[in-house]
């Protein structure tokens, strides 16, 4: 559906990250973690294409209603489109197409009870994982959330982590918050101590991070899902811009559309830069 969503709230985390709360009850009702929306920029800009953005969170109901009134986006300002979105003020409207794509696979009840989920985020890759974290906590699963960035300014949205079932492990390359080093260093230590407790693993971040995560998680025999990102023209599966080569059963590579067959893929099917 193409919703006309009102901006409810904007919150900046430092200079380059912000969240936008949008009023879109119908869209929020059917949204699943891992899905995304196509955001149309307000009229009057020479940037014509919609921007794909992960659904980062459902806005919790205000107590009188049972269903969420909308959702949040977590945005990093990287160019023209995200810059324009950063200037949106409450009360303005945005056309939002979605929810789109295939989201994360949720674990069975048994696994949710017996194991804990491991979520690994690199920078703005945290966006879809916040939504997943909330959903997993809702079904009663323990969650470990590894969240890495260059510095502490890259760790936006931490105020969304309130659940007591979530173990938050921060890491920064410059040592300004949490573990001093890369996500993979922290992951190696975590795997050494807790491997037997881990159920499904979910990752979203830069390709290089996800490639390194895949190399560590798959040999452990754990289920891994990665959420991919690409430039998109339509988000509808028709422009064929966002394809990614995915390993086919016979070992050959086939193009799959991130917007339609993804954005979530199994860790073992994704092909990162020749690996």
């Amino acid at each position: 559906m193409d919703a006309d969503a009102r901006v409810l709230k904007k919150k900046f985390y430092g200079d380059t990250y912000f969240s936008l709360d949008l009023h879109a009850p119908q869209l929020a009702r059917t949204a699943e973690p891992g899905q995304f929306v196509m955001v149309q920029l307000p009229p009057g800009t020479e940037a014509i294409l919609r921007r794909p953005m992960a659904l980062a969170r459902l806005i919790p109901p205000d107590g009188q209603k049972e269903e969420p009134e909308g959702f949040s986006l977590l945005v990093k300002i990287v160019g023209k489109g995200s810059g324009i979105l950063g200037e949106m003020e409450p009360g303005r409207h945005l056309k939002i197409l979605g929810p789109l794509g295939k989201g994360f696979t949720l674990p069975s009840k048994t696994i949710a009870r017996e194991k804990s989920a491991l979520l690994i985020a690199g920078g703005i890759g945290s966006a879809p994982l916040f939504f997943l974290m909330h959903r997993l906590a809702q079904i009663g699963m323990k969650v470990t959330f590894i969240y890495g960035g260059r510095g502490k300014e890259d760790l936006a949205g931490l105020d969304w982590i309130a659940e007591d079932r979530v173990e938050l492990l921060l890491c920064t390359e410059d040592g300004s918050a949490g573990y001093h080093g890369m996500v993979t260093g922290l992951l190696d230590e975590y795997l050494e101590q807790k491997k037997s407790h881990i159920g499904p693993v979910y990752a979203c971040g830069p390709d290089i991070m996800m490639e390194e995560v895949t190399k560590r998680i798959i040999p452990c025999g754990l289920d891994l899902e990665v959420s991919l990102e690409a430039r998109m023209g339509c988000g509808l599966g028709v422009c064929l811009s966002c394809v990614v080569p995915v390993k086919h059963e016979e070992g050959s590579l086939r193009n799959r559309r991130i917007c339609a067959e993804g954005p979530v893929f199994k860790g073992q099917e994704v092909f990162f830069n020749g690996h």
């Binding site: 014509i48 294409l49 690409a230 430039r231 023209g233 422009c239 811009s241 394809v243 193009n255």
Partner: peptide
């Protein structure tokens, strides 16, 4: 079709190089 990236937005337009997939 062609290798990615296959799309790039330009001023009031876009470039594509899908390659007829």
């Amino acid at each position: 079709g062609n290798p990615t990236p296959r799309i790039f937005e330009t001023a009031s337009g876009m470039l594509n190089s899908i390659g007829l997939q």
